[in-house]
């Protein structure tokens, strides 16, 4: 769902290394009192969704909760759960669909908190284009080829009464230039990534059909996850992590300019402009709380809905009890 998949993988690896060194160097003094936690992002390179973690690092929220958190980036997408199970990471940032396939594959991981609360995924096109479910037939639609996108597209087709062969799914390294020069008709993404990207390239907002309008189930997209082992043995760390993240998220929501500046300072070579990150973060903030204004809280319903949906598009074979997927017991 994120942009620049290939080119970022290299940059990401370099950044991951440098940020780890910088952080460990800066925390020598307090190393003895702080507990080290390795956070693994869902993508090879950093982008604005990592702002809560960066802010918690930079503004001292982790420290205040006794943690020294380092950030790792996976070598490619969809490897985060594996990195958790092999002990290369402690707390991971993954999509809910990653979570579902991990459980299906009997990987011992569990979601400990929602990151976002609603499904802001959909189809997007250049400003001024016609993008309706009726206009999809025969079009070239861009996909990142990740599990989430693979899971969502069948719902769009169902709602549009189309067969898979009615559209052409193309996959590549970066969607925006392809969209701009007409190589593809539509792209798939989430609002907080697509809108800043296309706006930046065209100077006006893209058209899109998102969430229910695109026929996709309304479930959270991203969660924080840990292995069962880590949850059992280091529940204290998980709780401290979420407490720090909650404080950082609240701070980053009310100090958005400052939060983006922290991100830009931590990752000056992320490949994203200040404009992109600012707009992206502004669009992310409203996704982070539920209708009651609460952070993190997961429900049986969200997981059952997701699992049922994934089963219906044959990405998983069975729908397990929702408690297999998640626990709210570490919420602050």
């Amino acid at each position: 769902m994120k942009r620049n998949f290939l080119s970022l993988s290299v940059a990401g690896a370099v950044l991951a290394l440098s940020s780890v060194t910088v952080l460990s160097a800066g925390s020598i003094a307090s190393a003895s009192t702080l507990t080290a936690v390795k956070f693994v992002y869902d993508f090879p390179g950093p982008d604005m969704e990592i702002i809560p973690v960066v802010v918690a690092q930079k503004e001292g929220f982790f420290k205040a909760n006794g943690l020294n958190v380092s950030v790792e980036f996976p070598p490619s997408t969809s490897l985060t759960t594996q990195l958790l199970t092999t002990g290369s990471g402690d707390i991971g940032f993954i999509t809910t669909s990653d979570m579902a396939v991990a459980v299906e594959a009997k990987a011992p991981v569990i979601s400990v908190a929602n990151y976002s609360m609603t499904n802001n995924w959909g189809l997007f096109a250049k400003p001024g284009s016609t993008l309706t479910l009726a206009s999809l037939k025969g079009k070239k639609i861009f996909s990142w080829g990740d599990t989430w996108t693979n899971a969502m597209i069948p719902f769009v087709l169902k709602k549009a009464h189309l067969k898979a062969s009615d559209i052409t799914i193309v996959t590549g390294a970066n969607d925006t230039p392809l969209l701009m020069n007409g190589t593809i008709n539509f792209t798939t993404s989430t609002t907080n990534y697509a809108i800043p990207g296309i706006t930046e390239a065209t100077k006006s907002a893209p058209v899109g059909i998102v969430g229910a309008a695109a026929g996709v189930p309304n479930v959270p997209v991203w969660v924080y996850a840990v292995t069962h082992n880590y949850a059992n043995q280091h529940g204290k760390n998980v709780r401290a992590f979420l407490k720090a993240i909650k404080a950082a998220t609240i701070w980053a929501s009310s100090h958005q300019t400052k939060a983006v500046a922290d991100f830009m300072a931590a990752y000056p070579k992320s490949g994203y402009s200040k404009f992109y990150s600012t707009k992206g973060w502004a669009l992310t903030v409203p996704l982070l709380t539920n209708s009651a204004g609460k952070y993190f809280v997961q429900t049986n319903k969200q997981w059952t809905t997701l699992a049922t949906a994934l089963k219906s598009v044959k990405l998983i074979k069975s729908v397990p009890a929702p408690s297999t997927y998640y626990t709210n017991k570490f919420l602050p």
């Binding site: 969809s78 490897l79 396939v101 299906e104 594959a105 599990t147 693979n150």
Partner: peptide, 9 residues
């Protein structure tokens, strides 16, 4: 292969 990787396959 990427899809398989995404499905932990």
């Amino acid at each position: 292969q990427r899809s398989a990787s995404g499905s932990l396959d």
